[in-house]
Design a protein around this nucleic acid. Structure first.
Lengths: 122, 122
DNA sequence: GCTTGACTTCGATATAACTCTAAGTAATAC
DNA sequence: GTATTACTTAGAGTTATATCGAAGTCAAGC
């Protein structure tokens, strides 16, 4: 079991942020110790990592919550979750392609700088 | 010459946003018609595209302004601008690498869904 | 028993980047 | 000459994601 601070450390978040996520309904799966402290199992930790992955690829908290809600509903939502993930994968690919496009622009710019500014278009 | 709305269309921004950028000091190079309207030359358009590229790769407006300020100062800032661009390129590579890492996580997740949830880790 | 870590509520504050409103002016296009 | 487009100032409001602080409670470990 992990404490909130351990999870925070591992996932590069603050305990504050984790509680904030909890409040937003992103962590309904977390159990509590008899004294009321959050206890993260290995599986919980993996879910938090997945949440971070989704967040870091631009999924808004509300959509992540939707995914988690489906997850909590159980096996009936299996197909829906799978489709959501497949859709999000497309979005990540879109981001990568845009990033590549922008990298090209930057590379071109640096190439112009290396050519000592000759024919610099802008 | 392009009007503000044409540039907005081309760069997928609103005229509002372009005026906002202008106010923030990102577009000091734009000239005006005798009636006071903004006139974007081909070169200006390229610069706006560069600004969008920097913005879309996460550079904050203040840093973009700094770059534009250097640009307006002229050839003396050539080396500085080149170094800035090289540094930003590293940042873009970092983003791409993180995106790839996250794509892997998503792919793994989808693979588990395709395995019908067997051994689903989370 | 004292320190540390965790908990709660609640609200303030921050930050970035818009986004919009209003009210009035001025030139352009048909 | 009317509709469209663009301009101005100045400020209010929005969205998303935190981030912080206060104030008090509670339990565990040394």
């Amino acid at each position: 079991m992990y404490t909130i601070n351990e999870v925070a450390e591992i996932c590069d978040l603050s305990a504050h942020t984790l509680r904030f996520y909890d409040k937003e309904g992103l962590l309904p799966f977390i159990s509590r110790s008899k004294s009321g402290k959050r206890e993260f199992s290995e599986r919980d930790l993996e879910l938090v990592k997945l949440i971070c992955c989704l967040k870091n690829t631009g999924m808004p908290i509300k959509e992540i919550k939707h995914y988690i809600d489906l997850f909590m509903e159980g096996d009936d939502t299996f197909e829906t979750r799978k489709q959501l993930m497949i859709e999000h994968r497309k979005e990540v690919l879109r981001q990568m392609s845009e990033l590549k496009k922008n990298l090209n622009i930057i590379d071109l710019k640096i190439a112009f700088y290396n050519a000592n500014g000759n024919d610099m278009p802008s």
